[in-house]
Simulated scan of single mutants.
Amino acid sequence: MRRESAKPSVPASSVPAVAQAPPASPSAASDDDDDESEEEYSNRNVQAVVLGDEYEFDAWYDCPVLYELVPDFHVGHMIDYLFVCNRCFKHSIAGYTMAAHLIACKGTFETPGQLVYQNNQYSIRMVDGAAYKLFCQCLCIFAKLFLDTKSILFAVDRFEFYVAFHHTAPNVEQAVGFFSKEKISFDEYNLACILVFPPFQHLGIGHLLIDFSYQLSILDGVLGSPERPLSERGRATYLRYWAASIVRAITPLVTSGRQPRAMTPFALSIDDISRATGIRQDDVIDALRSMDALVKLTSTVTPAKDGLDALNAAAQDDGSWAISSPALDRWSASHAQQLAWMMWIDINSIML
């Protein structure tokens, strides 16, 4: 079996659950940039997970429901290995039982849900929690091993699950992560929980899933946002996504080789940026501030004098503001490598 890193680094947030390396508490995030944690996380009841017949990696968090689901497993005990099917996500503590199941499942399993997106490497399927209840419950129990705050394991009926698959060969696919969202969200949240499975992190899959959630909001004609509250690391993940989306939407980065050229000036409003990206106005403002690109205008700081671009920031109630093009240039240059490999969803390719 391939032994993967026991403590992968994953940014995360708080009530959208998003995986991250212990000890920080996850909830809505991605899987791409944070440094690996060297601390062991002791509050868990499973030592390691074996996914399919190829991947073995450490569990991160306790999954109390296993005490009820696994025979002769009691509070205080530790399971050395939990074997999980990489197709249907059913589990067993017996390797021989799972070996037999994998053979049977390979011949009978049909990938659930509706294909809603596909590129040359990945596809995304929408799985209705009510229509495929057992699959989604098993997926949630598996996810609980990596999401400290995940609480919904069985009441999956009101959620849609968007599961990402990596196509390793013709007609061969492997589930690599997912996000869930409520079918009806009165707050218009576009993501409740996200997890990229540990062996498949640092490949940009988390960014792809987050971008897909925003494209769904755009198709629905609303401005989306992840469920609140966000943990510190989850907020950092989304700030990176929002910042990259803003740069991509309003200041296209023209590259010569790997060196970014200067970006053209622009005049726009927060609402313009929000409409172009599908990101809520307050999130746009937070992202611009995180880039040091939102500058308050005063009698001594003016667009003409300081190389700023006019901004009608109606969401600000304490004066006039402007976007600093030099600040956007600096942010883009410092994140050029990340921007180069980020995968983005073409909204016209979504099959809904």
Rank of each mutant, 00 (worst) to 15 (best):
K90C: 06
K90S: 09
H91L: 08
I93A: 07
A94H: 12
Y96S: 12
Y96I: 07
M98A: 09
A99G: 07
A99E: 11
A100T: 13
A104Q: 15
A104P: 09
C105R: 15
K106S: 10
G107Q: 11
G107K: 15
T108I: 08
P112W: 10
P112R: 15
G113P: 09
L115E: 12
Y117F: 11
Q118K: 15
N119Y: 07
N119F: 06
Y122K: 12
Y122N: 09
S123D: 08
R125N: 04
R125F: 02
M126K: 15
V127S: 03
A131S: 15
A131M: 12
Y132P: 03
K133Y: 04
L134G: 15
F135H: 11
C136G: 06
C136L: 08
C136H: 11
Q137G: 04
Q137V: 05
Q137R: 15
C138I: 00
L139T: 03
L139R: 02
C140A: 11
C140Y: 04
A143D: 14
K144C: 05
L145K: 04
L145M: 10
L147Y: 07
K150A: 03
K150D: 01
K150H: 05
L153K: 13
L153E: 07
F154K: 14
F154A: 07
A155E: 10
V156L: 08
V156T: 11
D157R: 14
R158E: 06
R158P: 03
R158G: 05
F159N: 15
Y162D: 00
V163D: 00
V163K: 00
A164H: 01
A164Q: 01
A164F: 03
H167P: 02
N171D: 10
V172W: 12
V172E: 10
V172Q: 15
E173F: 09
E173I: 12
Q174F: 05
Q174E: 13
Q174N: 14
A175W: 01
F179L: 10
S180V: 05
K181G: 02
K181E: 03
F186G: 11
D187S: 13
E188S: 13
E188V: 10
E188G: 07
E188W: 09
Y189Q: 14
N190H: 09
L191N: 03
L191W: 01
A192I: 02
A192H: 10
I194K: 00
I194E: 02
L195W: 01
P198Y: 00
P198I: 00
P198K: 06
P199D: 03
L203C: 07
G204Y: 02
H207C: 01
L208S: 05
I210M: 08
D211M: 04
F212G: 03
